Simulated assay, not measured.
Amino acid sequence: MNRPLVGVIAVVCHRDRVVLVQRGKQPSAGMWGFPGGHLELGETALQAAVRELHEETGVAALPLEYLTNVDVILRNDDGEIAHQYLLVAVLCEYQKGTPTPADDAEQAIWMPVNDLDSCGLPLLDRVADVACMAQARLRDRSPSPSAANT
């Protein structure tokens, strides 16, 4: 590989849980993270996130906003860079569906955000941080109960 690749991850929180998939292919086979993949020519990161989410889990969501970026640099046993990605994390609003593994996913689940640090699953870097960031952003976007009654 001679240059970094751009990918997307779909961050879907619903009822204090987040959709996670267990990767079925390299790189990072067996690891748990957000559904995602490569951008296709002509699509935005927002479009790619919901497409990848649906392809990998069957869950439908609306893209809300760009959440953050995640740098992924994977090295081989000799310390040389084997893969490098810039992942664009997209905050998505859950619409419907039950996570069911498909495409590149071995497993797909709803995981309580508060359990990410203690769940025992081999998580990819920054999964817990990004999930907490998404949950906080969704709280900020929601009108407060008192505002809804005015």
Score class of each variant (00 low, 15 high):
109 I>Y: 02
117 D>G: 14
121 L>N: 10
113 V>Q: 06
114 N>M: 12
97 G>R: 10
95 Q>T: 07
96 K>T: 08
111 M>Y: 03
109 I>L: 09
94 Y>G: 05
101 P>K: 04
111 M>N: 05
99 P>T: 02
98 T>P: 00
92 C>F: 06
92 C>S: 10
116 L>E: 04
113 V>K: 08
109 I>H: 00
103 D>K: 11
117 D>F: 08
94 Y>M: 04
99 P>W: 05
103 D>I: 00
112 P>E: 14
112 P>R: 13
117 D>A: 15
122 P>V: 09
115 D>N: 13
91 L>G: 09
91 L>W: 03
103 D>Y: 12
93 E>A: 14
91 L>T: 01
113 V>Y: 07
120 G>C: 11
113 V>L: 04
94 Y>W: 15
100 T>G: 02
108 A>R: 00
91 L>S: 08
119 C>Y: 09
106 E>K: 14
104 D>C: 03
92 C>G: 11
114 N>D: 15
100 T>S: 12
111 M>C: 15
114 N>Y: 13
96 K>N: 10
94 Y>T: 02
94 Y>E: 04
119 C>Q: 07
110 W>L: 07
122 P>E: 10
103 D>P: 00
103 D>F: 12
104 D>A: 05
109 I>V: 15
106 E>N: 14
109 I>K: 03
107 Q>F: 06
104 D>R: 03
109 I>F: 01
98 T>K: 12
103 D>S: 11
96 K>C: 06
118 S>T: 15
101 P>Q: 08
107 Q>G: 00
104 D>S: 09
99 P>L: 03
105 A>Q: 01
90 V>F: 03
118 S>K: 14
112 P>A: 15
119 C>T: 02
97 G>H: 13
90 V>Q: 01
120 G>N: 12
103 D>N: 13
111 M>S: 13
106 E>D: 15
95 Q>C: 13
120 G>L: 09
96 K>S: 15
113 V>G: 04
116 L>D: 09
105 A>V: 05
97 G>D: 11
119 C>W: 06
109 I>D: 00
111 M>R: 03
117 D>S: 14
96 K>M: 04
90 V>W: 05
108 A>F: 01
98 T>F: 07
100 T>D: 00
104 D>I: 06
112 P>G: 11
108 A>C: 05
95 Q>Y: 04
98 T>Q: 13
115 D>H: 14
99 P>A: 07
